[in-house]
Design a protein around this nucleic acid. Structure first.
Length: 220
DNA sequence: GCGACAG
DNA sequence: ATCTTGTCGC
């Protein structure tokens, strides 16, 4: 599919932070995405091993989660893991995978954060600019922010707040399991991001598209 | 200065 | 993320 690269990936950590400040203002988290308009949901994940990174994008069709397309891409890992700069580590290999997508997903769910990030531009938001399509951040652990108690039932949420700003929610996707952290990536609002995530989740903690992508990326 | 820190 | 054994539970 058509991509919209905004800058080269070969940068220093300092330049990476500068780019995040330049791009954060372009992230749109005010757009509603009606569930009725969501048919194709893509799961995105990356595995790393021995200096190589493998990206997997698995496109599923609701409501049965039939797999429509799977794209794999492998490249040398270009950047170290630095909290807050994950997109500069996984962006290059994801860019290649996205460029080879034949289908047109209505929304992409990432393994990582959207705006629930120190500079409000986690990997789901950053790659959302490349895709110019709705993206959602679905993290398993917290990067920034605090949240209070949430109900024990599936679907329970608690606001994720950082510096007085609501940047996402802690969402329980299954009874008795720790919550996942949902935040808008780009071109979607928080309420829609939560609705889509729940619509994409069945009996497991993580959304089906993400589970499929994780399995497809393998251990390398 | 100290602690926190997606994947 | 990846490195690792056994173990609790459906």
């Amino acid at each position: 599919m058509q991509l919209h690269p905004r800058h080269a990936w070969t940068v220093t950590p300092r330049e990476a932070v500068s780019l995040q400040h330049d791009l954060r203002g372009e992230i749109d988290t005010a757009r509603t995405l009606p569930l009725a308009e969501v048919r194709l949901v893509a799961g995105v994940d990356v595995s790393v091993k021995n200096g190589m990174s493998r990206a997997a994008v698995v496109v599923t069709r609701l409501p049965d989660f039939a797999i429509v397309e799977t794209v794999l891409a492998t490249r040398p890992t270009p950047f170290p893991y630095v909290p807050g700069l994950l997109s500069f580590r996984e962006g290059p290999v994801l860019e290649e995978a996205f460029s080879r997508l034949a289908s047109a997903p209505d929304v992409f769910i990432f393994d990582g954060m959207g705006i629930a990030h120190p500079r409000r531009i986690g990997i789901a938001s950053h790659m959302g600019l490349w895709l110019e399509k709705p993206t959602i951040g679905c993290g398993k652990t917290l990067l920034v922010g605090q949240f209070g108690p949430l109900g024990p039932e599936k679907g329970a949420t608690a606001p994720l707040v950082d510096k007085g700003e609501t940047i996402g929610v802690a969402l329980r996707t299954r009874e008795r399991v720790s919550p996942v952290f949902i935040s808008p990536g780009h071109r979607i609002d928080l309420a829609s991001a939560v609705a889509v995530t729940l619509a994409a989740t069945t009996r497991f903690r993580l959304p089906e598209p993400i589970r499929f992508a994780h399995a497809a990326a393998g251990t390398l």
